[in-house]
Structure formats: C-alpha cells, structure tokens
Nucleic acid binder design. Sequence first.
DNA 1: AGCCATGCACCG
DNA 2: CGGTGCATGGCT
Length: 254
Amino acid sequence: MTDSAAAVPRPDNGSISAVTPAGKALAHLQATYLFEKTLTTSDANGQGRIVVPKFAAREYLPSLDITNGVTVPCCDSLGQKYTLRFRYWVNNQSRMYLLEGTQEAQAKYKVQAGDSMVFGKLPSGLLVLCGQHSSADRTGLPNQKAASKVRSAPATGKVSGPALSNGHPRSAKRQSTGTGVTQRNAQGNTALEPLKVQDGVFRAIPHGLSLAPSTVSSLSGVWTATLNLAGELYVAHFDSQEAALEAFHAAGAD
DNA sequence: AGCCATGCACCG
DNA sequence: CGGTGCATGGCT
C-alpha cells in the first residue's frame, strides 16, 4: 500500500475528515474538504504557481473558457484573504490547470516541496486553503527529490461514491503522474457554487479548535459568527454584519 | 494515451 | 533580468 488511495471504494461520509491539522482547521470553519495537492518543487519554487490536477480543477474550480483564467477569491484557515488566479495552459491536446498567486499563502504556512496545500469550500462557497506541513520525512534535506519521495497525505480517502463524475479512480501513487491529490466530496454539492447557508443558525463544530476565539468576521460578503462556549465551538453565517453581531451578542458573547 | 513536472524560450 | 506561457519528457 503505497498510501491511502483516493480510490477507496468505500463510501463513508461526505464530510470533512478532521484527522489532520488542516482538516481540523477546515472543520472549524465548517468548510467542505475539496482536495489536497502535495507541493512539487515547481509548485514551491516561489513563483506561487501551483499546478492543479485536472480532476480537481474541473471538479472543484470554476469552469474555464479562456486561457486568461479567472480570479478566485480565497482565504486561508486563519481568515486572511487572497485573490488567486485560476487559469490553464494548453498542453498537448489537453489543458494544464494552475492556481496562481499562492506565494503569500505558501510563505505564511511555510510550506515547501513535499508539504501540501489543502483546499476546501466554505459554506458560503468561498474557496479556503490551508497549508499542511508534511511530517518529518525529509530528514535529510528538502532537495528537489524530496518532493518526489513524498506521497500524498493520509487524509483518509473517504469518497462518497456518486460525486466522482468524471471518475478519476486512480489512487495517488507516484508523484509524477499520480499526483499528490486526494479528493473526496460531499454528495451533491460540488464546486464552488454559492451555497446559501447564511441561515443564522449556530451549528456545533465537532472538531472545532479549542483555541478558536469567539469572533465575528466577514468573508466575501458573508458574515460569520464563531462562538466558543466553554470549549464548544459554534458557527453561524449571516448576510449582514448587523445580523451577525446581534446573534453574537444574543448568544452571550462579547 | 493521458497527465503532469519542469525546462526553457520569448516577451516585457 | 524576471516573469509568463509553451513545449518537451517522464511516468503511469
């Protein structure tokens, strides 16, 4: 077993697996796990260009018609916003997808070749990313080949059967073609379609970070109130700051 | 055959 | 000289 295998034919659940730090961070934000890309040397060479595996690109990112690409609003697990650019290159008879403008995030999480970037989707539909430091594999040195040695993350491939339309039943093996992607998806809700979840209902976050403070913040027009009540985390989304604050205070936070 | 990492040419 | 986009080669 090389490793996990995104091809595990066993549908468990469609939600986030909060087994990794990144997973927990995403869970805290009530984000849906999208996919994870293990950074290659090319991805981490400082240019901020990350090659996005075709499957992930077509499945989770906006459809692209023009090579110029589109800008994709994004934030990291700590709330910082980024404006990424999703585009493609014509390659052979196909396309090669890239996500540009990730250098800042890479630097922030201090990820390098061999580490990975986990992508998720907030309830609002906003793309969220989180750096995932690979465990101390490269004892020796982060040489180029370091990345080649690293396998994809053990993100417990839980695939909820139906979502894999375009089917990409390959497991992540080698780094070359196998790519370091791990993908899984909640049943129907694919891509970045703006889900309307600003219902103002506080939901408990099972694996919420205990260190998360009670806050009210906004991301792309969606206001989020996070409550840390005696260690239990609750999150609710609103359309306006007013609504968020009102509920926030009504819930006893300050 | 398809996919992707990366080298590299070209353009600013 | 650095960045962008392309073309090639390695691998599955």
